Computed example of a mutant assay.
Amino acid sequence: MDALIVGADRLGNIPDVLQEFGIRIAAHVSGRDSNHQRRSAPLPSGIQMVILFTDFIGHNVMQRFRDAATREGVMFVCCRRSVCALQQALGRRMSEECERCSAGCKTRRRGK
Rank of each mutant, 00 (worst) to 15 (best):
A3F: 04
L4N: 08
I5D: 14
I5H: 14
A8V: 13
L11A: 00
L11T: 06
N13R: 04
N13K: 14
N13C: 15
P15N: 10
D16S: 05
L18P: 00
Q19L: 15
Q19P: 07
E20F: 07
G22Q: 05
G22Y: 00
I25F: 07
A27H: 06
A27N: 07
V29N: 05
V29M: 02
S30K: 02
G31P: 00
G31F: 13
S34R: 12
R38A: 09
R38G: 08
P42I: 05
L43W: 14
P44Q: 01
P44E: 02
P44W: 04
G46Y: 07
G46T: 06
I47P: 00
I47T: 00
V50G: 01
V50C: 04
I51Q: 03
I51D: 00
D55R: 09
F56E: 05
I57Y: 11
G58N: 07
G58S: 10
G58T: 06
H59I: 14
H59S: 15
N60C: 02
N60F: 11
V61T: 12
M62N: 03
F65G: 05
F65H: 11
R66C: 07
D67C: 05
A69P: 01
T70L: 06
T70A: 01
E72I: 11
G73E: 04
G73S: 10
C78Q: 08
C78N: 02
S82G: 13
S82H: 04
C84H: 09
L86H: 03
Q88P: 01
Q88V: 13
L90E: 01
R92I: 10
R92N: 04
M94R: 10
S95T: 02
E96M: 12
E97I: 01
E99M: 12
R100D: 14
R100Q: 12
S102T: 14
S102F: 08
K106N: 11
R110I: 02
G111P: 15
G111W: 00
K112Q: 15
K112R: 14
K112I: 12
K112N: 13
